[in-house]
Write a protein that binds this DNA or RNA. Structure first.
Lengths: 213, 213
DNA sequence: ACCTGAACACCGTTCAAGT
DNA sequence: ACCTGAACACCGTTCAAGT
């Protein structure tokens, strides 16, 4: 399959993004890299934001493809493997990570589809781990949110240099992910030896999410 | 104390940031808001990035002041209160949050000082919670990193709309913080009824943080 | 020491015109 | 349908000049 002009524009934008961050992605340089004029992109994308959204979409697609390939293997990837892979990807392609999960408030239907597929893969991995006693019981959606939030935050803080600034422990994001899974396994064991009260279920909401005064 | 011109420029930049994001912070508009010409800021800041770093510094200072005031109260703020406050601040001032923790690779000595003060406050709160059995034992620095990473990631995902997209649970970032503290309390209880092997200490490193192949 | 107005290079976007 | 070159408005930054 030959690369369409649209694809080559996206590839050029992604390369510039990796190289110099979002500031380096100018339509003029994108056009120059792809061998067209500086406003040829306007025939394929509404504006610069749409081009960046397409870059994020391509990245999400590639991530989903890799994940699907792993899901075909036996055994299926564990929740821990998924989160560790997420962190490794973020560290390896910081700019794509920031772009993809930074903001694509735009609707981009295909983008939402692949995101939903990735989410459901994580959900089933969480459910499997719960059944094996590696993760505590409760709403899998909420537990998946916890895992994703930690992996995302650890990667983001590490990329900004806000992690273990003075720590002699030198804990990286992957270490924090591992720690969380260790603690959750301990919590699951503790719950197994207790009365079955669920955490994170609808009945035990802790805090309102409303705006503080 | 009257507001110096430098302060009024920082205030103008912060107001523009809150209103329209980083793109709305132009030196021309900053000057107009502060009542000076569009390049007067260059007499107070090296360039636009330095002005934004000063905005981040002012924000960090105000956060530290609020935290110190709370620390004077009895009892001292718990680790959970600190993290909940962090999340609430991020949701209330999204642009300042993204700027302050996004990137200030710049050295800015005073910035590092207030950041270190805030970090040590969290560390002591973690140690207190550990002594009370609310948090599991282990390196407090590493545990603090876990808490901060989760709060940061939950806030960031919520702001980008990547949290509980289809969840009927509607778990917000504050809920995830509460969940984590619940799980950690359970893990602490489980560890108390086990042989004292520490998690997250130097001897039990889980994963190398090196780059994946 | 601080400020101004003019000027330069760059960028996103639009438009008339070509094939 | 896709592309080009010129043009416009805007922005960061620099510079000569003022007080």
């Amino acid at each position: 399959m030959v690369e369409s002009r649209r694809d080559s524009l996206i590839a050029a934008a992604a390369a510039l993004l990796d190289q110099g961050g979002p500031a380096a992605v100018t339509l003029r340089e994108v056009g120059r890299t792809a061998g067209v004029s500086h406003n040829a992109p306007y025939k394929h994308f509404a504006d610069k934001d749409a081009l960046l959204a397409a870059v994020a979409g391509r990245e999400l697609d590639q991530l989903a493809r890799v994940a699907r390939a792993r899901a075909g293997a036996t055994p299926q990837p564990s929740a821990k493997a998924l989160m560790t892979g997420y962190v490794a990807w973020a560290l390896r392609y910081p700019e794509r990570f920031k772009l993809t999960f930074g903001r694509w408030t735009r609707e981009e239907p295909e983008l939402a589809a692949t995101a939903a597929a990735a989410h459901s893969m994580l959900l089933s991995a969480v459910a499997t781990a719960q059944a094996q006693g590696d993760l505590p019981p409760g709403d899998p959606e909420r537990l998946a949110g916890l895992l994703q939030a930690l992996a995302h935050g650890a990667a983001d803080l590490a990329l900004s240099g806000h992690l273990s600034e003075s720590g002699k422990g030198r804990a990286g994001p992957a270490d924090l992910v591992a720690d969380l899974f260790d603690y959750l396994r301990l919590a699951a064991a503790e719950k197994a030896s207790q009365a079955p009260v669920s955490i994170g279920a609808a009945g035990s909401r802790h805090h309102s999410d409303s705006e503080p005064s």
